[in-house]
């Protein structure tokens, strides 16, 4: 690793100040992606600003059809405590392995926007709201391509607000070493309609699958999407899965997600 300073502010205000004073500083929000990245010398921050001491990012609560989760809440805690939204708890319980889930945080995952991460699919499919130290951002406006969001330099995600769907399910086909999704599909049915988000598949990161949403709005059943094929534009291809296989997996995961939502 390159050399850097390590700071652990105890208030959000202090963290924001450190980041605004130093544009080479980087937020550490669990570190299960960032630390391996640093070890490969793919990042060279001046200082690492750990958010682990910020108590204001640690709340998880549910009321009035909404689950609100602080950015510093670990995947393990979401899996154990988000009982009001079982599909989200199940998704969190399937991220990485137990050691990753004990350290990794929802805010870190969403801000990183890995194109194969699980949380972005839930955030986009639910039309969740990303709350930062500066503003609230709708999911449809938040993700901006692979590893990219509309967050400004130094802007810190402080929490997520998920409207709880009437029915929801998530299914992923995981890469067995990293446990990231080769394809993952989150289906969320609301009174206003069905939203479907796909992760692990596109070179542009998480996206909504319009054809699947249209089919499920007509008939919320596995049969309705039985023959649906994902358009092959911009599908990722790597040593783990080529584009054709990934697109096929997306269709299979869609059916499994609908099955989970109906169970």
């Amino acid at each position: 690793m390159y050399e850097f300073e390590f700071v652990k502010p105890t208030t959000l205000k202090d963290a924001v100040q450190i980041l605004s004073d130093d544009d080479e500083a980087v937020v550490l929000a669990g570190g299960q992606t960032l630390v391996p990245t640093l070890r490969q010398r793919l990042a060279m921050p001046s200082q690492l600003v750990s958010l682990s001491a910020l108590k204001e990012l640690q709340d998880l609560s549910a009321d009035a059809g909404m689950v609100t989760i602080g950015a510093g809440v670990t995947h393990a805690r979401v899996a154990a405590e988000a009982a009001a939204f079982p599909a989200l708890a199940a998704l969190a319980g399937g991220i990485g392995d137990h050691a990753v889930r004990n350290r990794g945080t929802i805010g870190g995952s969403v801000a990183n926007n890995d194109p194969s991460a699980c949380y972005p699919a839930a955030v986009l499919a639910c039309g969740a709201t990303v709350v930062t130290d500066q503003r609230s951002i709708a999911a449809d406006a938040f993700f901006d391509g692979m590893f990219t969001t509309v967050l400004d330099e130094g802007e810190i995600v402080t929490g997520l607000q998920f409207p709880i769907p009437q029915q929801a399910g998530y299914a992923k086909f995981k890469q067995p070493a990293s446990h990231f999704a080769l394809a993952g599909v989150f289906v969320a049915k609301f009174a206003e309609g069905v939203r479907v988000a796909v992760t692990g598949v596109s070179e542009d990161g998480v996206f909504r699958w319009a054809d699947a949403e249209a089919a499920l709005n007509t008939d919320f059943s596995v049969d309705a999407v039985m023959d649906l094929a994902l358009p092959m534009d911009d599908v990722m291809s790597d040593i783990h899965a080529d584009a054709e296989y990934r697109a096929h997996l997306a269709g299979v995961m869609l059916k499994r997600a609908v099955t989970a939502a109906l169970s």
């Binding site: 390590f6 652990k8 550490l28 570190g31 299960q32 630390v35 391996p36 070890r39 690492l48 750990s50 682990s52 393990a76 137990h98 050691a99 990753v100 004990n102 350290r103």
Partner: peptide, 18 residues
């Protein structure tokens, strides 16, 4: 793998300063 405050954690992915 080690245990930090009772939770399994990867010692290669945790900064000592934390």
């Amino acid at each position: 793998l080690v245990h930090i405050d009772g939770a399994s954690s990867k010692a290669c992915a945790v900064m000592a300063g934390d």
